[in-house]
Amino acid sequence: MNDLPQDTPAKDPFHVGEQALQTRAGKRDRMREIGRRVIRPFMPDQHREFFGQLPFVVLGSVDADGWPWASIIAGQIGFLSSPDPKQLDVNAMPLVDDPLGKALSVGTPIGLLGIEMSTRRRNRMNARVTRTGTGGFSLGVDQSFGNCPKYIQTREIAYVRDPGAKGAHPATRSFEHLDHAAQSAIENADAFFVASSAQPAEDSIADGVDVSHRGGEAGFIRVDGDTLTIPDYVGNFFFNTLGNFLLTPKAGLIFPDFETGDVLMLTGTVDLLWEDDPRVRTLQNAERAWRFKLDHGLRIPDALPFRSRSTRDI
């Protein structure tokens, strides 16, 4: 067990964007107290153990031009380890063409999401790079907290190759428009991950980069050319992603194809659609929504060393 104090942060753990969304939803007072209780400046032991049993982790970063990116790093079980409650070591590196690689320097804010598809558990971290090396890097914890399993499709994962094996993979393709294959992949997706960022607020300890899971039944994302309309369902009222959008209306999305191993990485601008917008009413069960407009993206074939299928198909 760690010996860090279990008291709550003295300051509100939510920044002004998150606070504004909580106020709009009528949850501000409640979330202030919940946030102080469950958002910690260190990882509890169960989170440290949880990260150590994952085959992949999702990270959020921002490139030199201010565009956010969501990325996936995979490894053998145990590639994530925590020597103490304030540090997570990632003993693997991003894919060669992933923008995350250029963003990894000491002090850089990074968002991190650990998700175990077989159990639907997920834990989040907002952190900063504290060490870089040829085979990995370390993150220092700013905020650590858990998330509920809502909207996660249960999947079983099996490796198809050694994640650490070096070798050529098919060429990465960059693009500025979604072709038919990309549109079809997005329309059929039941999950993706979104990175967002916000500037620090003077009255809050929260800042930096966040990365989050979004899921639903296949077809929950509407595609219109290079624009995606994404419903926002009822959740935990933290509003980490939408609160960031309110301050910095940009997003990085990653769509992993669990059957082929390909990943589609997009970055672009965001518009929020509020609950009284008629477009929201056409989205089943949506509380609000957001529209993503592509600026540019990457398709990395065979990026994942594992394959996965929904347990509903087994």
Rank of each mutant, 00 (worst) to 15 (best):
P5M: 11
D7G: 06
D7F: 09
T8Y: 11
D12M: 04
D12V: 02
H15S: 07
Q19M: 11
L21Q: 00
R32H: 04
E33D: 04
E33S: 01
P41W: 05
F42A: 05
D45W: 10
E49W: 08
Q53E: 02
P55H: 02
V58H: 04
L59N: 05
L59E: 04
G60Y: 14
V62A: 10
A64W: 04
G66C: 12
P68W: 10
P68Y: 10
S71H: 14
Q76F: 06
Q76W: 06
I77K: 12
P83R: 02
Q87A: 05
L88I: 07
D89L: 14
N91K: 15
K102E: 07
S105W: 14
T108Y: 05
T108C: 09
I110E: 02
I110W: 02
G111R: 03
L112H: 05
S118G: 01
S118R: 01
S118V: 01
R122P: 04
N123E: 09
R124Y: 05
R124M: 06
R128V: 08
R131C: 05
T132F: 12
T132K: 10
D142E: 13
Q143M: 13
S144A: 15
F145Q: 07
G146N: 10
P149T: 11
E156L: 14
V160D: 07
G167T: 14
A171S: 10
R173H: 12
A182G: 08
Q183W: 06
A185R: 14
I186G: 01
I186H: 02
E187H: 13
F192K: 06
F192I: 05
F193Q: 04
V194F: 00
A201R: 11
E202F: 12
S204Q: 03
D210K: 00
G216K: 15
I221W: 13
R222M: 08
D224E: 09
G225Q: 06
D226R: 11
T227F: 05
L228Y: 08
T229Y: 08
I230Y: 09
P231D: 07
F238E: 10
N240V: 13
N244K: 02
F245T: 01
F245K: 00
K250R: 15
F255M: 01
D257N: 01
F258P: 02
F258Q: 01
M265W: 07
G268K: 02
V270K: 08
L272I: 13
W274F: 13
D276N: 14
A286R: 12
E287R: 15
E287A: 12
R291C: 10
F292H: 06
R309I: 07
I314S: 09
